[in-house]
């Protein structure tokens, strides 16, 4: 039976490829023209927007805040998510279905609703502040609106469910018999985790953490709502530049910087992990 499957793929490839090329080309090209206000742009190409970005400390600070909050959120998501993913993946009772269902619901409910819940929890007379003030830890209500802690918490809620699902599928590809073998041969639980589970899951975990990081870098909602107009990340700034200042070219420049930063950090991490592995530092 000879079916030419490569032709089956062709229409899809053309659609997706065309959409990628067209959309990316238009905004990247636009980012090289100066805004003249009210959505009009100049006719001559120049680097003026990029110059402005890299000489204005506000823009540079925004880029740094974006990378920092995304990186922290990705790391915290990993630390909170990995033990949960491991628990579910190795569980053999009916309970694992219920635990999984909790994760999947948390993944699929829109972040706006979750941020809404967070605001209620952290409001002045909300659960957290009642507990903190009742225990005498703080005198004035603690708030997560308008500071970077809030943005990181919001980003974590955006990615944690998805992160657990990713890590779950990574752990499932590691045969449990390897863990048993290590323990039968006398390895303690910790030693087994360190010498068997960690190195085997590292490639998958790296990919997972990078995906989570990428999600955070493009996340707009939690940063916009919890930043409260005081913390700016690049996605928030892009939306403001388009909706309020109506400067499409500058927004294009911001988007281009964001895109390139994400790609560079991804390539760099993959390169570092490869170096690490070839130097036999990780797989002992």
């Amino acid at each position: 039976m000879k079916t030419r499957w490569e032709y089956v793929l062709l229409p899809s490839f053309l659609i997706v490829g065309l959409l990628i090329v067209a959309s990316q080309y238009v905004f990247l090209k636009g980012s090289f023209f100066k805004d003249l206000g009210l959505g009009r742009i100049s006719d001559t190409a120049s680097m003026v927007n990029y110059l402005r970005f890299f000489t204005d400390s506000f823009y540079l600070h925004t880029l740094w805040v974006t990378v920092k909050t995304s990186g922290l959120a990705a790391l915290f998501t990993l630390t909170l998510g990995f033990p949960v993913a491991y628990l579910i993946a190795r569980m053999q009772s009916k309970w694992s279905m219920i635990l999984l269902a909790g994760i999947v619901v948390a993944t699929f409910v829109t972040i706006v609703i979750k941020v809404f819940g967070l605001i209620i929890i952290f409001s002045a007379d909300g659960l957290v502040n009642q507990a903190l003030m009742g225990l005498g830890i703080v005198d004035t209500p603690y708030t997560i609106i308008g500071n970077q802690t809030g943005v990181v918490v919001g980003l974590m809620h955006f990615t944690l469910g998805f992160g657990v699902l990713l890590l779950y599928s990574v752990i499932q590809t590691i045969p449990r018999s390897l863990e048993d073998a290590a323990q039968i041969h006398g390895a303690s639980r910790w030693r087994m985790h360190l010498r068997v589970l960690f190195p085997l899951s590292l490639p998958g975990v790296t990919v997972g953490v990078l995906m989570i990081f990428n999600m955070c870098m493009g996340a707009f909602t939690s940063a916009a709502l919890l930043g409260g107009g005081r913390v700016f990340t690049l996605p928030v700034l892009i939306q403001r530049t388009v909706m309020m200042e109506i400067k499409y070219s500058m927004a294009g420049t911001l988007a281009a910087v964001l895109l390139v930063t994400v790609l560079l950090i991804n390539l760099l991490s993959i390169y570092l992990i490869r170096r690490l592995r070839s130097a036999r530092l990780v797989i002992a």
Partner: peptide, 27 residues
């Protein structure tokens, strides 16, 4: 390369996709 083209929309930050399509539609 082909399979990474199909995966690319996930690598592009969501906000960038939004503004890219907006500008594409204007043009």
């Amino acid at each position: 390369v082909i399979s990474s083209v199909f995966r690319a929309p996930l690598q592009i930050p969501a906000i960038v996709t939004g503004i890219a399509f907006l500008q594409l539609y204007y043009l």
